[in-house]
Computed example of a mutant assay.
Amino acid sequence: MGRRIVERELTEEVALCLPSGRLNPDAVGWSRTPLHDTSGIGGPTSWGRNKRWEYWAVTTPTHIVSLTVSSLDYASVHGIMIHDIRSGRTVERGAVAPLSGSATLAARLGAGPARARTRSLSIDIDESAGGTRLRGRSADVAFDITAERPDGHEVLAVVVPWSQKRFQYTVKDVARPSVGWLELAGDRVELPVGESWAVLDHGRGRWPYRMQWNWGAASGTVDGRTIGLQLGGRWTDGTGSTENGVLVDGTLHKISEELGWDYDERDWLAPWHIHGTGVDLTFVPFWDHTSSTELVVFGSRGHQCFGHYSGWVDTTEGRIRVDALLGWAEDVRNRW
């Protein structure tokens, strides 16, 4: 079962880094809105260890869309993917460019656009008062989707401290209602209103060279309520921080517990079990999105399985039922 820990909720803005570039101890904790100034990430300090990215995934009853804009200092890694759940067809376009010139990433979340520009693809992420516009284009794929931001919508923002020199600030923003369209091989599809959801993974930090993690997320409606799951494991273990929470009608309920993740690495489509004292979820995948990249200094192997969550999560308002909530669970091992 899981292990409960004590975490500090932050309510005022704070700098992630000290002037020296080390972790600011006052920044360690979690918040319901993005409060951290991450402008200290990047530049010559700890060059090669700085990692910055924006990852979005959008789920609908018929399609899955994802996009990545990232800078790893010595390389920029970008990607676009559209998967048709009905036919099983997937079109994926990726680009790896030297250094960070192909990536535009704001110093902190919401402070400016994120963009990727390479010969093979373009991605634009733009903030507005009512949400975030996500646009991407490459051979055989295109999309223009707005992830709406309802009034009072909360996020889970967490600082994970491995040491004074190695740390990560992550914002996981789940259950964002989405509208717009996607194109797959020339066929345009309008996103069904009320059944389309976006999830953000915003990251700024300085990482160890090798790392493994689990991440799970899901969004949808259950019993007339909007539910968003945010689950993480392995990479946060032993740090005193977790990235676990459940969003209910826009309000975040923090889960301060290291959860157990049980799954079969010989059969990725077998049911997964994610559990703790206040969480008991079964995840049943229908598609394993595998990835593998091996370059000189960068390598990544991942299984991002898409499927449905069922079970329950305890909150301060009582036990929340989860039933057939569409999302994903992943196992990733990076050398970067």
Rank of each mutant, 00 (worst) to 15 (best):
S196H: 02
T277R: 15
L269Q: 00
R166M: 10
C305Q: 07
R210W: 01
V322R: 11
S256Q: 12
G29V: 12
A198G: 15
A139V: 04
G110E: 03
R335C: 08
H153E: 06
L156G: 01
G220Q: 03
A103P: 08
G43Y: 11
R188M: 09
G302K: 13
F283N: 01
L134K: 07
F283T: 03
E127Y: 15
A218M: 09
D223F: 02
E148C: 10
V159A: 07
S70Y: 07
L35D: 09
P44M: 04
S178M: 07
N24C: 10
R89V: 13
Q230A: 14
A57F: 13
E195V: 01
S128N: 09
A198W: 00
H275R: 15
G29N: 06
H83D: 08
V322S: 06
N334G: 10
R89I: 10
G240W: 04
R210T: 11
V96D: 05
R206M: 13
V189W: 02
K172V: 12
Y169N: 14
A139K: 13
R93L: 10
S310L: 08
V160A: 07
V179W: 00
G29F: 08
R93G: 05
R137K: 14
T316E: 14
M1D: 12
R137M: 08
S291F: 08
W56N: 02
V96E: 06
H83G: 06
L109A: 03
K172Y: 04
M81L: 15
G327V: 00
H153V: 02
W197T: 13
D140M: 10
Q164E: 15
R301V: 06
S102A: 15
V65I: 15
D124I: 03
S241C: 06
G112M: 06
D314M: 13
W215K: 11
D126G: 10
G110D: 04
H153R: 04
V193L: 08
D173P: 06
N24K: 06
D201F: 07
D323S: 15
I85F: 03
Y209T: 12
W53G: 03
I125R: 01
I123Y: 00
I255N: 02
P177V: 11
L105M: 11
A111G: 08
W328K: 10
E13I: 00
R8S: 05
H275P: 01
W272F: 09
G216C: 07
H83K: 11
K165Q: 13
F283W: 11
A95E: 03
G21Q: 06
V96H: 00
T68G: 00
K254W: 04
H273W: 13
H78S: 13
N244Q: 11
P271G: 05
M1F: 08
R32Q: 08
V179P: 00
N50R: 09
D37E: 13
